[in-house]
Design a protein around this nucleic acid. Sequence first.
DNA 1: GCAAATATAATAGCATTACTATCAACCTTA
DNA 2: TAAGGTTGATAGTAATGCTATTATATTTGC
Lengths: 235, 235
Amino acid sequence: MLLYLQSNLFIMKSLLSNLKISVPDKIYLKDPESSKLGKRIIEHSILLIDKIGFDSFTFKKLGVEIGSNESSIYRYFESKHKLLVYLTSWYWAWIEYQMVFTTFNVQEPKEKLLKAIEVVTETIEQDDSFSHINEVLLNKIIIDESSKSYLTKEVDNENKDGYFIVYKRMIKRLRNMILEVNSDYKFASSLASTIVEGALHQHFLKEHFTSITDCNDNISPSEFFKDLTINAITN
Amino acid sequence: MLLYLQSNLFIMKSLLSNLKISVPDKIYLKDPESSKLGKRIIEHSILLIDKIGFDSFTFKKLGVEIGSNESSIYRYFESKHKLLVYLTSWYWAWIEYQMVFTTFNVQEPKEKLLKAIEVVTETIEQDDSFSHINEVLLNKIIIDESSKSYLTKEVDNENKDGYFIVYKRMIKRLRNMILEVNSDYKFASSLASTIVEGALHQHFLKEHFTSITDCNDNISPSEFFKDLTINAITN
DNA sequence: GCAAATATAATAGCATTACTATCAACCTTA
DNA sequence: TAAGGTTGATAGTAATGCTATTATATTTGC
């Protein structure tokens, strides 16, 4: 199955190189995909946030990193918060694409669901379709920082403005696959959101709080959540 | 069972009024429980963080709120981050106490586990044992802000210094109760940590992202996690 | 009841942050 | 070649996250 997944990934990557991951345009002032500087902002923001953490990250420091001016970065994003929202949206849109592609031709609902869970919970492998984006580091940022994008006093307004649609849409797809296996299951949405956030959390724990997780180099969060899901919905 | 739980709570509260919730002393410079000002700092930090959010919260604003000086607050806590770590430790120690007390005399492992899950996942009711602490608001803060206490570049050092032992100890108790029901279950630690963080997350979703949760006024996160746990570990 | 010790308040100061504004330079492309 | 848009440089501002110093209360121990 791993081999199958990998060859799938190969086909998908060649497809993706002609595609643009679509992020809601309210998030940015100017589309960073539309210019060289914009791409450098995305590329180096990922490197810098991974290096010093989102809390210490500033546009001034990013400016130094890309040999550009702070004020130029402000022309793309209103604030570092919006940049984080952009990065998380991009990430989930990319995961969503992989999820849809990987499960598209799978008939058996259970097999389909398990593949989808794998896509959202597995450790990320480098994808070279988007040369300026380091997906491995972006995944680390999602694990360490993404919850800060919605744990704010402005969530409800930003949610109304569509900042989190990609994330919610991806979770709804997962919920639907759960319901395809068992349409009587009462908690499909909660299970889907628990799988996604829970997997990020288990990845965090295996790096920092090893005593309260079973996940490590041998047991992956993916394994745990596949077992959990199957037991929860099939009886 | 609800009645039984409530009478238990009554006995527990009278007990608690003679007890002090113990928080690791590395977290503070001066024990806020040791003075009137210290207690005012805790009391009003809960009110103010709930009101304006942790990101906008500053010691200067808190000083205004309690009619005291910024520099006086700095004598109790090095930073607002440490104050958050203090509040979360206090909260989990309080939950841990309720968990131990509520399950103490319960013989049947499954019943014991279900009661423990209820304690960690249910919406909090006001507890008047600690007059300066509003547990309902503190619970809201835990839902909205607690992950910021460990999602930092300093986690590993702070973890070594024991900042998170209360939290980890509470999760280990829950893991042990899972193992008492089924000692062969392979993911007891991951399940315990998923229940605790997952419940906070579901509480957040039912307030802000209702489309990706099944939880609402009729279905509680507690119900979901009890069902999930039983299906996961019994077969 | 008074002195000593301790806690708190007031003020100032400082580097950094998170921006905004202005203007100049440059680079396209019609 | 003029016009429009993009980027860079510089400056400025209010707020943040502290530290330091000194003065004033308050508690306590004798």
